[in-house]
Amino acid sequence: MSPPALRFANASFGYRGIVAASADLRIESGEVVALLGSNGSGKSTLVKGALGLIDSYGGDVEWFGQPFDQLKGRSVVGYVPQRQPSTSPIPSTLEELVRTGRLGRTGMFGRYRHSDRYEVAEAIRTVGLDAQHRTPVRELSGGQQRRALVARALASQAKALVLDEPFAGVDQESQDTLAEVFRSLAGRGITLLIVLHELGPLDGVVTRAVHLADGSVIFDGDPKQRSAALVGVDGHDPHCADAVVHVPSTFGLFPR
């Protein structure tokens, strides 16, 4: 049996000694998982913890059966942060941006070979920006910039992508385009862990919803059942904010 793409085993993460999110989850290869919840619920904390970007306060995280910092070829995991890329005063082309994603494969002293150039071009093509590959990133629209970040993560031939609110600040048309990109990636068997406020255009693409409130998982299961299960929880009814939805183990939670 192959190891899961991502496994949180009683893992806790936070800042300055304070635990902000905990989880006990197993995400299989090829799943498209939406990590949902209101602002401050711990979604971004959880994914940053999984990527080793913030402090861990217990438990374990494994990607493809290995701790992230010992993962052979970290490039199997791609990260798409929430930020827009065009904040630097120095211009850089889309190709230059996406090429940085290749460093996970080549290493910082490695040569940039023909095969690397091909993979960069392929990643750009996947997100539908081939015509803009020499365009300065700051001249791209918000939606195109977000697709550029997806291409950067794909350039390392990642088997799993972590996307932190990819639709934030993106217009509806671009959201639909991004959703098509994610559908295509899912079709290629790439595991997707997507932080979202709502499913929106990904309804139908996401195969599993994990809902967080106050740093803990309160729902893990079929996206179609989420709304019904969360009535009275996490803002739906403030008088019931502490309620916890009991999730069948078949939804992927480890037995505690």
Binding site: K48, L51, G52, L53, R74, S75, V77, G78, Y79, P81, R83, P85, S88, S92, E96, L97, R99, T100, G101, L103, G104, M108, F109, Y112, R152, A153, S156
Partner: peptide, 20 residues
């Protein structure tokens, strides 16, 4: 190391995840 310096300057978190 220009490409790596560029990557870190562009996005430290992404560079860290990428193993730089």
């Amino acid at each position: 190391v220009g490409p790596a310096l560029f990557a870190v300057g562009d996005d430290e978190e992404f560079a860290a995840v990428n193993g730089l």
